Amino acid sequence: MGGFKNETINSAFDIGIINVIIAHLTKCSKQMKVDCIATDNLLKNNEDAITNRLIAVYLNTEPGIFRYEPQSPEHYDRETDHYIGRTDIKVISGDYFRDEKAYYIIECKRIDGSITLNQNYITKGVERFFSPNPHPKYSSYYLQNIMFGYVVRAIDITENADKIDKLQGSLLKGATASQFTLMQNENSQYYVYACVYVAPDIGQIELNHLFFDFADVICEK
Protein backbone atom coordinates (compact mmCIF):
# COMPACT_ATOMS: atom_id res chain seq x y z
CA MET A 1 0.00 0.00 0.00
CA GLY A 2 1.63 3.25 -1.13
CA GLY A 3 1.74 6.55 0.69
CA PHE A 4 0.82 10.04 -0.43
CA LYS A 5 3.31 12.15 -2.41
CA ASN A 6 2.90 15.22 -0.18
CA GLU A 7 5.52 15.20 2.61
CA THR A 8 3.12 16.54 5.24
CA ILE A 9 0.73 13.74 4.46
CA ASN A 10 3.55 11.19 4.45
CA SER A 11 4.35 12.30 8.00
CA ALA A 12 0.77 11.48 8.96
CA PHE A 13 1.05 8.23 7.03
CA ASP A 14 3.94 7.17 9.28
CA ILE A 15 1.59 7.09 12.27
CA GLY A 16 -1.27 5.66 10.24
CA ILE A 17 -3.49 7.67 7.92
CA ILE A 18 -6.59 5.83 9.07
CA ASN A 19 -5.74 6.61 12.70
CA VAL A 20 -5.36 10.30 11.82
CA ILE A 21 -8.77 10.32 10.14
CA ILE A 22 -10.41 8.44 13.02
CA ALA A 23 -8.84 10.83 15.55
CA HIS A 24 -10.35 13.76 13.64
CA LEU A 25 -13.74 12.05 13.44
CA THR A 26 -13.82 11.38 17.18
CA LYS A 27 -12.58 14.88 18.07
CA CYS A 28 -15.26 16.51 15.90
CA SER A 29 -17.96 14.14 17.12
CA LYS A 30 -17.16 14.94 20.75
CA GLN A 31 -17.29 18.66 20.04
CA MET A 32 -20.58 18.27 18.18
CA LYS A 33 -22.09 16.54 21.24
CA VAL A 34 -20.86 19.33 23.52
CA ASP A 35 -22.37 21.97 21.23
CA CYS A 36 -25.66 20.09 20.91
CA ILE A 37 -26.10 20.18 24.68
CA ALA A 38 -24.87 23.76 25.09
CA THR A 39 -27.19 25.14 22.41
CA ASP A 40 -30.06 22.67 22.88
CA ASN A 41 -29.81 22.00 19.15
CA LEU A 42 -30.11 18.23 19.20
CA LEU A 43 -29.51 15.87 16.28
CA LYS A 44 -32.34 14.30 14.34
CA ASN A 45 -32.40 10.52 14.36
CA ASN A 46 -31.45 10.55 10.71
CA GLU A 47 -28.20 9.39 9.10
CA ASP A 48 -27.97 12.20 6.55
CA ALA A 49 -28.79 14.90 9.10
CA ILE A 50 -26.01 13.71 11.44
CA THR A 51 -23.52 13.38 8.58
CA ASN A 52 -24.37 16.77 7.10
CA ARG A 53 -23.88 18.64 10.37
CA LEU A 54 -20.66 16.78 11.14
CA ILE A 55 -19.16 17.68 7.75
CA ALA A 56 -20.47 21.23 7.37
CA VAL A 57 -19.87 22.49 10.89
CA TYR A 58 -16.91 20.45 12.15
CA LEU A 59 -14.82 18.26 9.84
CA ASN A 60 -13.75 21.00 7.41
CA THR A 61 -13.69 24.06 9.66
CA GLU A 62 -9.98 23.95 10.48
CA PRO A 63 -7.06 23.82 8.00
CA GLY A 64 -5.88 20.25 7.58
CA ILE A 65 -4.34 17.76 5.19
CA PHE A 66 -7.71 16.27 4.29
CA ARG A 67 -10.97 17.50 2.84
CA TYR A 68 -14.21 15.72 3.72
CA GLU A 69 -16.66 15.64 0.82
CA PRO A 70 -20.33 14.59 1.28
CA GLN A 71 -22.41 12.41 -1.04
CA SER A 72 -19.85 11.70 -3.75
CA PRO A 73 -20.88 9.52 -6.71
CA GLU A 74 -18.94 6.29 -7.25
CA HIS A 75 -18.27 4.07 -10.27
CA TYR A 76 -19.70 5.57 -13.44
CA ASP A 77 -21.40 2.92 -15.61
CA ARG A 78 -20.91 3.70 -19.32
CA GLU A 79 -23.80 1.46 -20.36
CA THR A 80 -26.44 3.16 -18.22
CA ASP A 81 -24.86 6.61 -17.72
CA HIS A 82 -25.45 6.21 -13.99
CA TYR A 83 -23.18 5.99 -10.98
CA ILE A 84 -23.46 2.65 -9.21
CA GLY A 85 -22.72 3.96 -5.72
CA ARG A 86 -22.74 7.15 -3.69
CA THR A 87 -20.40 7.51 -0.73
CA ASP A 88 -21.42 9.16 2.53
CA ILE A 89 -18.04 10.85 3.06
CA LYS A 90 -15.04 10.93 0.70
CA VAL A 91 -11.71 11.84 2.31
CA ILE A 92 -9.35 13.52 -0.14
CA SER A 93 -5.95 15.20 -0.05
CA GLY A 94 -3.83 17.09 -2.53
CA ASP A 95 -2.90 13.79 -4.15
CA TYR A 96 -6.51 13.39 -5.30
CA PHE A 97 -5.86 16.04 -7.94
CA ARG A 98 -2.98 13.93 -9.32
CA ASP A 99 -4.90 10.66 -9.15
CA GLU A 100 -8.68 10.76 -8.81
CA LYS A 101 -8.68 7.26 -7.33
CA ALA A 102 -6.57 8.34 -4.35
CA TYR A 103 -9.03 8.78 -1.50
CA TYR A 104 -10.57 7.06 1.50
CA ILE A 105 -14.27 6.41 2.11
CA ILE A 106 -16.30 6.71 5.29
CA GLU A 107 -19.60 4.83 5.16
CA CYS A 108 -22.06 5.96 7.84
CA LYS A 109 -24.89 3.97 9.40
CA ARG A 110 -27.20 4.42 12.40
CA ILE A 111 -26.99 1.84 15.19
CA ASP A 112 -29.65 1.39 17.87
CA GLY A 113 -29.13 -2.19 19.01
CA SER A 114 -31.94 -3.56 16.85
CA ILE A 115 -31.46 -6.52 14.52
CA THR A 116 -32.76 -4.40 11.63
CA LEU A 117 -30.08 -1.71 11.85
CA ASN A 118 -27.38 -4.28 12.64
CA GLN A 119 -28.28 -6.13 9.47
CA ASN A 120 -28.43 -2.89 7.48
CA TYR A 121 -24.98 -2.01 8.76
CA ILE A 122 -23.70 -5.10 6.96
CA THR A 123 -25.93 -5.48 3.90
CA LYS A 124 -26.27 -1.77 3.11
CA GLY A 125 -22.91 -0.69 4.47
CA VAL A 126 -20.03 -3.16 4.68
CA GLU A 127 -21.12 -5.04 1.55
CA ARG A 128 -20.80 -1.93 -0.61
CA PHE A 129 -17.04 -2.40 -0.50
CA PHE A 130 -17.25 -5.96 -1.84
CA SER A 131 -20.42 -7.18 -3.55
CA PRO A 132 -20.02 -7.09 -7.37
CA ASN A 133 -22.70 -5.43 -9.46
CA PRO A 134 -20.69 -5.90 -11.73
CA HIS A 135 -18.13 -4.53 -9.27
CA PRO A 136 -18.33 -3.12 -5.72
CA LYS A 137 -20.23 0.14 -5.24
CA TYR A 138 -17.24 1.64 -3.38
CA SER A 139 -13.57 1.63 -4.30
CA SER A 140 -10.67 0.83 -1.96
CA TYR A 141 -7.63 2.49 -3.49
CA TYR A 142 -5.57 2.24 -0.29
CA LEU A 143 -7.18 -1.05 0.78
CA GLN A 144 -8.41 0.64 3.96
CA ASN A 145 -11.65 2.46 4.68
CA ILE A 146 -13.94 3.31 7.59
CA MET A 147 -17.40 2.27 8.71
CA PHE A 148 -18.87 4.90 11.07
CA GLY A 149 -21.68 3.67 13.28
CA TYR A 150 -23.80 6.45 14.77
CA VAL A 151 -25.09 4.95 18.03
CA VAL A 152 -28.46 6.68 18.48
CA ARG A 153 -29.77 4.69 21.48
CA ALA A 154 -28.28 4.03 24.92
CA ILE A 155 -26.91 0.53 24.37
CA ASP A 156 -23.90 -1.54 25.34
CA ILE A 157 -21.71 -0.75 22.33
CA THR A 158 -19.28 -3.62 22.88
CA GLU A 159 -22.12 -6.12 23.15
CA ASN A 160 -23.71 -4.80 19.97
CA ALA A 161 -20.38 -4.80 18.12
CA ASP A 162 -20.07 -8.47 19.01
CA LYS A 163 -23.52 -9.09 17.51
CA ILE A 164 -22.52 -7.35 14.26
CA ASP A 165 -19.27 -9.31 14.22
CA LYS A 166 -21.19 -12.58 14.42
CA LEU A 167 -23.79 -11.47 11.86
CA GLN A 168 -21.07 -10.90 9.29
CA GLY A 169 -20.41 -14.62 9.19
CA SER A 170 -23.94 -15.38 8.00
CA LEU A 171 -24.96 -12.21 6.13
CA LEU A 172 -21.90 -10.81 4.40
CA LYS A 173 -21.74 -11.43 0.66
CA GLY A 174 -18.73 -10.90 -1.56
CA ALA A 175 -16.07 -11.38 1.11
CA THR A 176 -15.08 -13.36 4.18
CA ALA A 177 -14.33 -11.45 7.38
CA SER A 178 -11.96 -11.94 10.28
CA GLN A 179 -13.15 -11.30 13.81
CA PHE A 180 -13.37 -7.74 15.10
CA THR A 181 -10.23 -6.64 16.93
CA LEU A 182 -10.61 -3.78 19.43
CA MET A 183 -8.07 -1.09 18.55
CA GLN A 184 -9.07 1.79 20.81
CA ASN A 185 -11.83 3.20 22.97
CA GLU A 186 -12.50 6.15 25.24
CA ASN A 187 -14.53 5.16 28.27
CA SER A 188 -17.88 4.20 26.75
CA GLN A 189 -18.07 7.12 24.34
CA TYR A 190 -16.57 5.36 21.33
CA TYR A 191 -14.96 2.12 20.24
CA VAL A 192 -12.83 1.35 17.20
CA TYR A 193 -12.50 -2.17 15.81
CA ALA A 194 -10.39 -3.41 12.92
CA CYS A 195 -11.56 -6.18 10.63
CA VAL A 196 -9.80 -7.77 7.65
CA TYR A 197 -11.86 -8.88 4.66
CA VAL A 198 -10.83 -11.12 1.79
CA ALA A 199 -12.73 -10.80 -1.49
CA PRO A 200 -12.11 -13.07 -4.52
CA ASP A 201 -11.48 -10.37 -7.13
CA ILE A 202 -10.17 -7.64 -4.84
CA GLY A 203 -7.90 -9.33 -2.36
CA GLN A 204 -7.49 -8.22 1.24
CA ILE A 205 -9.08 -5.03 2.55
CA GLU A 206 -9.25 -3.64 6.07
CA LEU A 207 -12.25 -1.77 7.43
CA ASN A 208 -12.04 0.14 10.68
CA HIS A 209 -15.38 0.20 12.49
CA LEU A 210 -15.94 3.32 14.61
CA PHE A 211 -18.99 3.19 16.90
CA PHE A 212 -19.65 6.58 18.53
CA ASP A 213 -22.29 7.18 21.21
CA PHE A 214 -24.61 10.02 20.15
CA ALA A 215 -27.58 8.75 22.19
CA ASP A 216 -27.61 11.70 24.62
CA VAL A 217 -28.03 14.27 21.84
CA ILE A 218 -30.61 12.57 19.61
CA CYS A 219 -33.98 14.25 19.26
CA GLU A 220 -36.86 11.89 18.64
CA LYS A 221 -39.17 14.50 17.12
Rank of each mutant, 00 (worst) to 15 (best):
F129C: 00
D201V: 04
G149E: 01
Q184C: 08
C36W: 05
L171H: 11
E100H: 08
S72L: 07
Y121R: 01
D95C: 10
S93A: 15
I115D: 11
N133T: 13
Y58N: 09
P63K: 00
L210Q: 02
Y83M: 12
I122P: 11
I164S: 07
G169C: 03
Y150K: 00
E69M: 09
P132A: 06
T80M: 04
Y83E: 12
E69G: 00
I21T: 02
A102I: 13
S29G: 15
D88T: 11
V126K: 00
L117E: 09
E7I: 15
E107V: 13
Y193R: 06
D99S: 14
N133C: 11
N208P: 05
E220D: 09
R128F: 03
P200K: 06
K124G: 11
I50R: 03
M183F: 06
V198I: 08
K109D: 11
T181L: 05
Y104N: 01
H24W: 02
F148C: 12
G16I: 13
H75I: 14
D156W: 03
K137L: 09
I202M: 14
L42W: 13
I89M: 09
I155K: 01
P73C: 09
P63D: 03
E159C: 01
L210E: 04
Q119M: 04
D112H: 09
G64Q: 08
L182S: 06
S72Y: 14
I202F: 08
I92M: 13
A102L: 13
E100L: 06
I164N: 05
E62Q: 14
F13S: 07
F148T: 02
D156L: 03
R78Y: 14
R67Y: 08
K33F: 03
D162H: 10
D112G: 10
L207V: 12
K173M: 12
N6R: 04
E186P: 00
I22S: 01
L59C: 07
S131W: 09
V126P: 04
S72M: 12
F13I: 11
